[in-house]
Amino acid sequence: MSKPTILLIDDEERILRSLRMLFLSNYNVRMTTDPHEAIRILKTEKVHVIVSDQRMPVMQGSELLRIARDTSPATMRILLTGYSDLDASIASVNEGEVFRYLLKPWLADDVKSAVAEAAAIAEASFSVHSVDLKSVQAGVEHKKPRVLIIDSEEATSITVREILGVRCEIVWAYNAQMAMEELAKQDVSVVVSDLMLGETNVAYILKTIKQLNPQTQCIVVTSFNDTSRLIELINQAQISRYLPKPVGKNLLARNLESMLERFNLLRSQPALQNRQAVAPISDDHEKMQSGNFLGMIGRLRARVAA
């Protein structure tokens, strides 16, 4: 098998030279300081992984990755940036839909393993992306999707209900216990969640969701703004959207639709679900919370089955 191709974009050539050396032996390395050149490469070559800087004079990395999504959907997208600003990280979720958000300076092994994982996933999805996904989807009949809202206030769930009406089963959980019970009952297609329920941080729940069902799509709707937490949620929860609160109805409607669509796509093409594979939880406390959460769900499910 030929080496996978990795495309590196950074306005600092020294970053490119340095990364190239890291990947030289195991990858076909393409690199450029010009995002437009990168788009041209994506159009003409089969690229497994694109690793882009965020702040560049011509184009922001999140914008380049958004274009990459359309140009080469099978390519896995990674952002490698020294600027951990909130706008960039939000754009990288909502537009770039990045697989990993990595920070400079990086540990060589971390970047290597993230790229290796991404390359393997890309290889598996090339074959899927070559078939016409729309036609695949249309043929499949699904049961009623289930949407879970995790929020201490009812407003978001009311909006979701207005948008989706009877098309979906809509469940509102206003505390962690309820969220757990609902997640234990049945699979959830889309989770719409805040990050804080009152004083409780529920990031660990979001980081556990992909372990319950890798197809579940997660939309975060919050007024909570913390860049490093968001970066963790990108890498460890693979949240699909990050929307500001209070969220406009149209914005939420648009994103709910595309997430329901994606859930259906993943259901029909499970090979694609790895594209949202999560990184291990880094925080020890959250790791423990997540473990307990999974354990309790397991017991609840066993009781229901019995």
Binding site: I15, S18, L19, L22, G82, Y83, L103, W106, A108
Partner: peptide, 17 residues
């Protein structure tokens, strides 16, 4: 700090390599 991250990024990587 952000400015420093770029040179720090490649210097650290180069040393690791």
């Amino acid at each position: 700090a952000h400015e420093i991250n770029t040179p720090l990024g490649y210097v650290q990587n180069n040393v690791a390599i």
